Computed example of a mutant assay.
Amino acid sequence: MSTFRMRVSEPGKRGVSYLLALVWLAVTTLPFLFVIVTSLKSQEESFSSSVWALPQRADFSQYESVLRGSFGIYLRNSCFVVGLSVLLIVLLSAMAAYAFARLDFPFRKTLFGLVVAAMIVPIHATLVPIYLLIRNIGLYDTAFALIGPYVAFSLPISIFILTEFMRQIPRELEEAACLDGCGPLTIFWRIYFPLSTPGLATVAIYNAVALWNEFIFAYVLTSTPAHRTLPLAIWDFQGQYSSNVPAMLAVVTLTSLPLIVVYAFGQERVIKGMMAGSLKG
């Protein structure tokens, strides 16, 4: 009887799971569809038609006006800042993780504990000292003013993820390399770094998504459009098109598309990297 009941209940459980998945899909997709649909309306139509009404004719003039403006400068700045920051985060966190996972040195556990504790430091509490530091060293209102804070605040979680991942790599590979005369640096570059590709991809995609959307440091440490990133583009276009809702949503769409494409192709790597670092051994 119990077996029969379990067989009967399994399709019902799957049906509930599918229903919840569809509800979650609607919750996450409808806002973005609303943004795209509204951005294709003319300014007059956005005021005269229903909020959820489809545009009578796709109007791409809003996108043209945005692209003719300074949007390209914002995009270039974001690509430079995020790209260089992620590269530094991956390299520095990988080297630190290898040291914490495989090397023996004084106060290793204490230092690793401090790195983990740094994850709870609130970003907003550091805005004033970081602002003063950036001004004093002459980097205020430059793209390099953002790279330092971005890398510093991203390292703790990245080091934590990669340390747990590298601990799962078999020591036999390291011992075999030592017998061949390889030093710690060679072992890191030829064994641990290549074998940590899933974890490195996880760290890179996770930080790229977070830094692409970062607003507060970009707002505090830059002041001119020539050095601001895409989150500030939305802020500035909101002032420029205060009553032109389709133009503002066109900025939102163009800003979100690169991130959506990257995450769509990289989400599987993120999940695999997280699972590999947590379930091995």
Rank of each mutant, 00 (worst) to 15 (best):
T3G: 13
T3I: 14
R5P: 02
R5N: 13
S9E: 13
G12Y: 08
G12T: 11
G12K: 10
V16W: 02
L19E: 10
A21F: 13
T29S: 11
P31S: 05
L33F: 02
V35A: 14
V35D: 10
T38V: 14
S39D: 08
S39M: 05
E45Y: 00
S46Y: 12
A53N: 03
F60K: 09
Q62T: 12
E64D: 13
V66Q: 00
L67W: 02
S78A: 08
S78P: 02
S78D: 00
G83H: 00
L84D: 04
V86N: 07
L87T: 01
I89T: 02
L92H: 07
L92R: 05
S93Q: 01
A94G: 13
M95S: 11
A99H: 09
F100R: 08
T110Y: 15
P122A: 04
I123M: 12
T126Q: 12
V128S: 02
V128G: 08
Y131D: 05
L133S: 09
I134C: 03
I134K: 00
R135L: 11
I137P: 05
L139N: 06
Y140I: 02
D141P: 02
P149I: 06
F153H: 06
P156A: 06
P156T: 11
I159T: 00
T163K: 01
Q168S: 14
P170N: 03
P170R: 03
A177K: 00
P184C: 01
P184L: 10
T186C: 09
R190G: 09
L200W: 00
T202F: 06
A204T: 06
A204W: 02
I205M: 07
N207D: 06
N207E: 07
A208Q: 04
F217L: 09
A218R: 00
Y219C: 08
P231T: 02
P231A: 03
G239R: 05
G239Y: 13
Q240Y: 07
S243L: 10
M248G: 10
L249K: 05
V251Y: 03
T255D: 08
T255I: 11
L257Q: 07
P258W: 04
I260A: 08
I260W: 04
V262F: 06
G266I: 02
G273P: 03
M274R: 10
L279A: 12
K280P: 10
